[in-house]
Simulated assay, not measured.
Amino acid sequence: MGLFNKLFGESDNKDTSSSRINWNALTSLQQLDDIIQESAEMPVIIFKHSTRCGISRMALSGFEKEYAIDTESAKPYFLDLLQHRDISNEIATIFHVQHQSPQILIIKDGVVVYHASHGDIDAGKVGEMV
């Protein structure tokens, strides 16, 4: 059962403190306005994650292992979809990107310039795009 729980998890929450990525928690709709403004200065990355989904957990784990973008090159945000589905819905509306889970978006100058989901989430590709 231990391996099963590691793959598919039994926790509802992501502990971002153990990640190599200095995630910024995306927890309010107001932050989307801030993200649009921030994206004029540097690319913003949003990782949308379902904390109860094994596929999402595997995509996140692989992304975090391969992530090599320095903090001056992009600002990464983490969205817990189970706690903040309203924010995910607003992201779909504002940025004209269909909701997926897991999903990664890169925003520059207030526009999504790249997005991928599931097995297409690739930290190397994200690094190229920022």
Rank of each mutant, 00 (worst) to 15 (best):
D86R: 03
Q100K: 11
E90P: 10
V130P: 09
S50Q: 00
D122A: 04
M42C: 14
D122S: 09
S17R: 10
T16R: 05
D80Y: 00
D122N: 09
I104S: 00
I35G: 00
E66D: 13
G54W: 02
L26Q: 01
Q30S: 13
L3H: 15
E72V: 11
P43A: 06
S61R: 10
S88W: 00
T51I: 05
M1F: 12
A68E: 09
A68R: 11
S11K: 15
K65L: 11
G62N: 03
K14T: 13
S73Q: 09
H96T: 06
Q103A: 06
G124I: 03
F78S: 11
E66I: 09
T93W: 04
I121C: 01
K75Q: 07
I35F: 02
A123W: 01
S56C: 03
I91C: 07
L3V: 14
D15G: 08
N5L: 15
S61C: 08
V130E: 05
H115E: 04
D34S: 12
V112S: 04
H99E: 11
D122V: 01
L81A: 07
I106M: 13
G2P: 15
E90R: 13
K65T: 07
I107F: 01
D34L: 11
G110A: 04
A123D: 03
W23N: 07
E72F: 05
Q31L: 09
